[in-house]
Amino acid sequence: FDIYVVTADYLPLGAEQDAITLREGQYVEVLDAAHPLRWLVRTKPTKSSPSRQGWVSPAYLDRRL
């Protein structure tokens, strides 16, 4: 999967189903980028939180090589 970094805090609107909150600087794996406005991502697990999966706007993501 492609690795992206979150460029700004992402707080989903209440109406968005299956969306997750992301923090600036967080790394995520993009699982599904087929839709231009919503990408399915999975967060990297940390010592304090397990990995999470949900939909985010790709405008908040920047690809890492």
Rank of each mutant, 00 (worst) to 15 (best):
T21Q: 13
P36F: 05
T43F: 05
Y10I: 08
V5H: 05
T7I: 15
E29A: 06
V28W: 01
R63F: 15
A34N: 13
Q53R: 07
I3L: 11
Q53C: 09
A59P: 02
A33V: 05
L13K: 12
H35Q: 09
K44R: 14
S49W: 09
P45G: 12
I20R: 02
P36N: 06
V6L: 04
Y10W: 10
V6P: 00
A59I: 12
P45S: 10
R38V: 06
T21Y: 13
T43I: 08
A34P: 05
L22A: 01
P45W: 06
V5Y: 12
D32Q: 07
A33D: 09
S51N: 03
D32T: 04
R42N: 03
I20E: 03
G25V: 01
K47I: 12
G14Y: 12
P50T: 07
V56M: 06
T43L: 08
L40M: 05
R63L: 15
Q53F: 07
T43K: 02
A15G: 15
A19R: 08
R23I: 11
L31Q: 02
V5M: 10
Y60N: 07
R23E: 10
A15F: 13
L61T: 00
D2Y: 14
Y27M: 12
L65F: 14
A15M: 13
R23K: 13
L37A: 11
Q53V: 15
D9F: 04
R63V: 11
V28R: 00
Y4V: 03
P36C: 05
V28S: 00
E24P: 11
H35P: 03
Y27P: 04
V6Q: 00
T7D: 02
L61H: 01
P45Q: 09
Y27D: 05
P45I: 04
P50I: 07
R42W: 03
Y60A: 05
L65N: 13
R64N: 13
R63I: 13
R38D: 02
P36V: 06
V30H: 00
A8K: 15
V30N: 00
D9L: 05
L65M: 13
S49V: 10
Q17R: 11
Q53T: 15
V41T: 01
L22C: 02
D9T: 06
A33E: 05
V41I: 09
S57K: 05
R64S: 13
Q26M: 12
D2F: 14
Q53S: 10
E24R: 12
T43H: 04
I3M: 09
Y4F: 10
E29R: 06
L22F: 04
D9Y: 04
L37Q: 11
L40C: 04
F1C: 08
A34T: 15
I20G: 03
R42E: 03
V56L: 04
A19P: 07
K44F: 15
L13W: 10
V30P: 00
T43A: 04
D18R: 04
Q17Y: 12
R64M: 15
A19V: 09
R64K: 13
P12L: 08
L61R: 00
Q26K: 02
P58Q: 03
A19G: 14
G54R: 01
Y60D: 03
I3K: 03
T46F: 08
D9K: 05
F1Q: 08
V6E: 00
A33Y: 12
D9N: 08
F1Y: 14
L31Y: 02
Y10A: 03
H35M: 08
V41N: 00
S48G: 15
D18Q: 08
Q17P: 14
T21H: 13
R38A: 06
R42T: 03
V30G: 00
V28K: 00
K47V: 12
S51A: 11
K44E: 11
S49E: 15
L11F: 15
G14R: 11
V6F: 02
L40E: 04
L61A: 00
Q26R: 03
F1N: 10
Y60M: 05
S51V: 10
S48T: 13
V41G: 00
I3G: 04
T46Y: 10
P58Y: 02
